[in-house]
Write a protein that binds this DNA or RNA. Structure first.
Length: 847
DNA sequence: ATGTACAAGATTTTT
DNA sequence: TCTTGTACAT
């Protein structure tokens, strides 16, 4: 083994002696411990309790991030640690950036000396790079993303002639990912899942996958942490170094950590024994039972290669009374755990006190974000969950406006109603940046986009494909990756025929066969093949040309700046040209993105540095900050806040999502409810809930019933409104009042779906399907008489659609037209002026 | 090697 | 209904 100490020093430049001055600077910048002044007593305690493990149970809007940043400032200011001795992990890059930004504001320059600030994966990756040789990698390994992972698996499946259509590579990738998140070896995987790989063969495929990763000098995201854990287990001296280095550990969003992250944290957070090295005792029995046993976990990811090593089981660091956990501070909210489906363990936070003996639990319960009504509604809703630690949030803000609940006929009307409310808010002086629409599933977004385009309302969709996930960026990066590391098969494969150069599947397949048989990377295989006659002359020439290009670029790399090299590569490879020739609408945008990519390279010293950054950190930065409504999923809204929040689609089957209920049962329901809680608590001043009675699911119309979560809201804080602005299902006079009775008042009528009752009781024609649970696939032919204020009075029908093909109709907005297609209540009409449109039959009138 | 026709499947998503 | 991926023909 090399001398990790030295290596680490190279890797951590901020650890120079000058760092000691930071505490002083920090104190000066903050004017003494004045930064503590604005904190309430709870927050202050969370900041100042520096000794021993601390769990901060922080509800929504209680100043979590502020506590974490202030805590770091406090540690520095007290001289308890130097920047390099603090490890702060967050869940997302976004959160890490936010933290860094705030620290910068608080400490000025000092933040530059704060290197161990980032996500689990980025920090894990960083440690792994330093000790790469311990897992038989070179330190410049590439990190595969999901896409690469899937393609690698496809290759392996193909090579092994495993062609099981039920389990395509993408699903296998998902499984492997899941296993790694849970810290499992193939042998520990639940039999149902293991069967996917076939008996015995499963291990082989997995082993082949891991082996191939090593040959390609690559790692997937799961391994960034798992290999870390392995190194820590097998090389106690390395572990001890990091244990000694990190005097303080801070973790944000602890409720979202998965098992691998948990294990990693637990290893790092122990105090090493000063005298006799690490304890070798076994972990507590409870851990073993619950599958958290460190010793059992992931001896070696490559099953075949590991057998020998596993028997010489290394010493197992464990938390014992002697090796006490030290200054770890985890911040989280069990009520905001919404990532269970991807391996997050709420249990981690629920078990904190058990895992870290002597832990102090501090609750932050004063909410600084939302008004009284919103907070009350959210708290009452979440109180229906059983498995929670329990917090009672309070606010000193005014009650504000009640949470509104609005019913709409269908999703289109829902979008229209929300659009009009937004315009109203805008007229009243609200900035669009302070308005968000949070949906459960991304397919809901389209309806809003359509509507906003019509209205000319600026909007932005958050959480679309990230910058670096775009095809053109990934292609360009593949070129650069391949220059940097010739062994990068996935990069090679990605660009070997992009732009088209006559090297199709057959050629690539051949290269694969050679590469795998000889256990060499594709590039080397290509080099070998070019020397033979195995390829047709045309393909051979083409491949040779490509290899020559790369040789030239690699040579140029030494003598020219990397940005210039990038431009040359994109140019000479014909890649830029390919998009220039492309006539499709987004080609210009793609070229623009490529320029942006080159521009972003300027910040880095060299190609290597840039690529390392890319694989772990690069994130699309929000574009220019123009005023626009945000549309996003509830999941991506976590951690954000807006004055006005619209929450459409509160219907059974959609929210709570049917699949969550089917697959996770009660746990699934509780997670959905937490999601609802997260949604509500994003709002500062106004929260507006919507449900539609009809929604199109996979193309066919279904009648839906309002979400049970609506029943779980406290009547006192909620107002039932009509769908506004000429779109409601009118005549809601007595409707509101009757609903109030059905809203939940603490502890009562949880089981009775009041909304369903209310609907059934209305006794209005047309709602004959209301209350019928979720009949997917049923096409709706009967409908209610609609009073559309300001528009038309729709037809009252007791029978099926009154329109027939060829009917001449009138529409308020589009004018006169001809019915050309009928689909349930959706009509396709060719309007005289507006052209062909799809319209709900209630908005047109036969003339 | 590339274009077209048809079937299947369609939450949430970070690194 | 619409997208995506695979099978097949050119």
């Amino acid at each position: 083994m090399t001398e990790p100490n030295r290596v680490i020093h190279r890797d951590v430049p901020e650890h120079r002696p000058a760092a000691g001055g930071i505490a002083a600077r920090a104190r000066a910048a903050a004017g003494g411990p004045q930064y503590l002044a604005g904190l309430n007593p709870e927050q202050r305690e969370a900041v100042e309790t520096l000794d021993g493990p601390v769990l901060v149970l922080a509800g929504a809007g209680t100043g979590k991030t502020r506590v974490l940043t202030t805590r770091i400032a406090h540690i520095l200011s007290q001289g308890r640690a130097r920047p390099g001795e603090i490890l702060s992990v967050t869940f997302t890059n976004k959160a890490a950036r936010e933290m860094k930004h705030r620290l910068g504001q608080m400490l000025g320059q000092a933040v530059e000396g704060m290197p161990w600030l980032g996500t689990f994966h980025s920090i894990g990756g960083r440690i792994l790079r330093v000790h790469a040789e311990l897992v038989q990698l070179k330190s410049n390994f590439t990190v595969l993303d999901v896409d690469d992972q899937i393609r690698l698996l496809k290759q392996l499946l193909q090579a092994d002639n495993i062609d099981d259509k039920r389990w395509p590579a993408r699903m296998l990738a998902g499984l492997i990912d899941g296993w790694k998140n849970r810290g499992l070896t193939p042998s520990q995987v639940p039999s149902g899942e293991a069967a996917v790989f076939g008996n015995g063969r499963g291990g082989k495929l997995y082993a082949a996958y891991q082996e191939r990763l090593k040959i390609l000098n690559a790692s997937d995201f799961g391994d960034l942490l798992l290999e870390n854990i392995r190194i820590f287990r097998e090389h106690p001296d390395v572990l001890r170094q990091y244990q000694q280095r990190f005097k303080f550990i801070l973790v944000d969003e602890y409720q979202d950590t998965n098992v691998a992250q948990y294990l990693w944290l637990r290893l790092l957070s122990q105090t090493p024994q000063p005298s006799s090295g690490l304890q070798t005792t076994s972990p507590p029995a409870q851990d073993r039972e619950q599958g958290y046993d460190l010793a059992d976990t992931f001896g070696h990811p490559v099953a075949a290669a590991s057998e020998a090593e596993e028997r010489t089981s290394p010493v197992e660091p464990a938390i014992t009374p002697k090796a006490r956990p030290k200054n770890i501070c985890c911040v989280g909210d069990d009520d905001q755990s919404i990532y269970g489906w991807r391996g997050a363990e709420v249990d981690n936070i629920l078990r904190f006190e058990h895992d870290f003996p002597g832990a102090k639990v501090i609750r932050l319960e004063r909410n600084y974000r939302s008004t009284g009504h919103i907070l009350a509604a959210a708290s009452h809703l979440i109180a229906h969950n059983e498995g929670r630690l329990g917090k009672t949030l309070r606010t000193e803000d005014e009650d504000g406006e009640k949470v509104t609940v609005t019913g709409a006929w269908d999703s289109e009307e829902e979008a229209r109603a929300i659009g009009e409310e937004i315009e109203q808010l805008q007229r009243a002086g609200n900035r669009l940046n302070e308005i968000a629409i949070l949906v459960r599933a991304s397919f809901q977004m389209r309806e809003f986009e359509d509507r906003f385009v019509t209205l000319g309302l600026p909007y932005r969709v958050i959480g679309g494909p990230r910058f670096y996930e775009r095809a053109e960026i990934r292609d360009a990066l593949a070129y650069l990756r391949l220059i940097n590391s010739p062994a990068d098969d996935l990069a090679f494969e990605r660009i070997v025929n992009v732009p088209k150069r006559g090297l199709g599947d057959a050629t690539v397949q051949m290269l694969h066969d050679i590469a795998r048989k000889r256990r060499i990377p594709l590039t080397e295989a290509a080099r070998a093949v070019v020397e033979t006659d195995e390829l047709k002359p045309k393909a051979r020439g083409s491949l040779r040309g490509l290899l020559d290009n790369f040789d030239r670029w690699r040579a140029q790399r030494e003598i020219m700046p990397h940005t210039e090299l990038a431009e040359i590569v994109l140019d000479e490879s014909g890649y830029t040209e390919m998009w220039q020739k492309d006539r499709s609408a987004d080609a210009a945008g793609r070229l623009e993105n490529l320029k942006e990519l080159v521009r972003s390279m300027e910040e880095f010293e060299n190609l290597q540095g840039f690529l390392e950054h890319i694989s772990l950190v690069m994130d699309r930065d929000g574009g220019p900050d123009e005023d626009a409504v945000s549309v996003m999923t509830l999941h991506s809204a976590k951690g954000l806040e807006f004055d006005n929040v619209f929450l459409p689609g509160w219907e059974e089957g959609l929210f709570p999502h049917q699949r969550a209920l089917d697959e996770q049962g009660r746990a699934g329901l509780e997670e959905e409810r937490r999601l609802a809680h997260v949604g509500l608590t994003r709002a500062r001043r106004r929260a507006k809930l919507y449900f539609a009675t009809n929604r199109r699911i996979h193309g066919s119309w279904s009648t839906t019933i309002p979400s049970r979560f609506l029943d779980e809201l406290p009547a006192h804080n909620v107002e039932i409104t009509e769908s506004k602005g000429g779109s409601g299902w009118g005549g809601a006079g007595g409707y509101g009042a009757s609903r109030f009775d059905n809203l939940d008042s603490f502890g009562s009528s949880y089981a009775t779906p009041g909304w369903q009752r209310a609907q059934a009781n209305r006794g209005r024609g047309g709602f004959n399907e209301a209350g019928t649970p979720y009949n997917a696939g049923g096409s709706r032919t009967k409908r209610a008489p609609l009073t559309i204020e300001g528009e038309l009075v729709a037809k009252s029908t007791g029978t099926s659609s009154d329109f027939s093909l060829g009917d001449r109709v009138f529409h308020q907005k589009f004018g006169y037209g001809l019915v050309t297609k009928i689909d349930g209540n959706k009509l396709t009409i060719t309007f005289d002026k507006a052209g062909e449109k799809k319209v709900v039959d209630s908005f047109v009138e036969r003339v």
